[in-house]
Design a binder for these strands. Sequence first.
RNA 1: GGGGGCGUGGUGUAGUGGUUUAACAUAAUGGCCUGUCAAGCCAUAGAUCGCGGGUUCGAGUCCCGUCGCUCCCGCCA
Length: 596
Amino acid sequence: MLKTHTCGELRPTDDGRQVTLAGWVDRRRDHGNLIFVDLRDRWGITQVVFDPSASPEAHEAASQLRNEYVLQVRGTVRCRPEEMVNPTLDTGGVEVLAIEAQILNPAKTPVLYINRDVEEDESLRLRYRYLDLRKPRMQRNLILRHEVVRFIRNYLHDRDFIEIETPILIKSTPEGARDYIVPSRVHPGRFYALPQSPQQLKQLLMVSGLERYFQIARCFRDEDQRADRQPEFTQLDLEMSFVDRQDVIQLTEGLFTELIQTVTPEKRLLQTPFPRFTHAEAMALYGSDKPDIRFGMLLTDLSPDLTDSEFRVFAGTLSSGGQVKGIRVPGGGSWPRSQFDELVTTAQELGAKGLIWMVVEGTSPIALRSPVNKFLSEAEQQAIVERMQAEPGDLLLIIADAPAVVAEVLGQLRLQMGRRLNLLDDDVLGFAWIVDFPLLEWDEEEGRYSAVHHPFTAALDEDLPYLESDPARVRAKAYDVVANGYEIGGGSIRIHRRDEQQRMFRAIGLTPEEAEAQFGHLLQAFEFGAPPHGGIAPGIDRLVMLLANEPNIREVMAFPKTQNAVDLMTQAPSPVSEKQLRELHIKLDLEPQATR
RNA sequence: GGGGGCGUGGUGUAGUGGUUUAACAUAAUGGCCUGUCAAGCCAUAGAUCGCGGGUUCGAGUCCCGUCGCUCCCGCCA
């Protein structure tokens, strides 16, 4: 080793020790005769003093130093006098008096500031990611990620799970996200796909009798990016045999609870055991299937009070199967009028026909300030205020529209209002389970039903009889774990019988021939004694993002891609040679512009 | 596919409502300095304002296009 100690470990008790440190120059403070260098490595920063009276040679070397030079120093640890202790450094009680210094590598002026916290242009950070990753924030995130994965491995190992790798080159199937595909050289015209998740493979491992499997699995989806979505990402993929929903939920909940208490003890879990909502409840109360339950401001259904209203917006909406619902924004009544107009615009941009706002000025007697109160009877105003438990000074935001629109718009407004009122505490993790998702949803574009979760998800036993007669009514043995408004993971109890799986394929419009061609291996496997099984797949990146208080998952990935799925450091994707294409029997058919 | 934001010395910003040497901080280069820890002081150098076109006497600033990064909708079984 080129060092005897790290830059984070020396303490006053090491006084007098001969040590060798190596790392990067974080800062140099040159006083002419005396030079101070903050030497940095992964473990910390130690101040090195270059005194010409102690070592002229080392001092001369130090005068050459610039930020990010790689330096090896041999010297003597000495305690700092009390008034020179730096309380902001773990090693601030000591310094190393340099006897010998060797520049292992100089460095150009860095394009990013490693030693200060500035928000540099993201493309610059990604292009020079290896420099970006030198920053304490990024190292902290990568270390946290490692700790999370290490805890998961230990936890599952202790519970008799085994980690099994599944192939990255697999078969493309049309269901789900767009596949990344890989051409085969030895089979001209044929392609592998990169897994969107190891779903079928882990189910086959259950057929194999492994019973408890997990994998820290890389997944690939060729879809457009978001702050919490990258083209490749990592899931904790796990599957268990002879379980029901309760078993998977309990295991996952125990894992998360202990993980967070161990790895990020500064985080507070809002509620354990995690509260459970049916999908219908979550939509009704929060307007979202991934609710942020750190704050209330629940959606209140006003429909029962307004069915006979003279106000046509309400009556008309209700008579045509719509809903009237609202949220109560405490204290929002004092905002300027212009902000209410902005909220109306926001609601319309989100798809609502309009937004009704009411300022509660008094509750006994009822006094509302609103563009519509002249259309509402005294009794109706009374009912609205009572049902929403409104108090003077509150702002009420009401939407009358189709149920899906009401949920979407009020759900979004609720989040905006929560942020605005500072109701979202970053140190709190509001985990919850969402269960009883619909099994199928109508796909307008394809003109058929498609699986909400995936086509291997089992239906609730009591709903299964309606699979053919009333598909939209069937609920799934599925469960999502959500936290702070993010979907952290989803899972289900799977179908394990061939006949039931074929029924499901039929329900999503696959012919028996198509089902056989695409999923024949799975159907066949189910004929050889497939056990009941189920599992879940939490997203590691999103979880770590939450634990690290980061706004996007790029901050917890070493080498992420841009929104256009480009790697700015390596410039992937890039053209390949004619020879490579020829070997793969691939001819390009590009627009003239697109040849770059 | 659509909508929004951003792009000015190496880096982070100011300027932007039409006009002169495009300002500040930091980094950089040289000098001074024995106790700093975002060291300090002095001096020097560095941007034709993402790129292309247009309007104008005059464009960093206005208009059109384009590229890059980003946020969102669609999409993400």
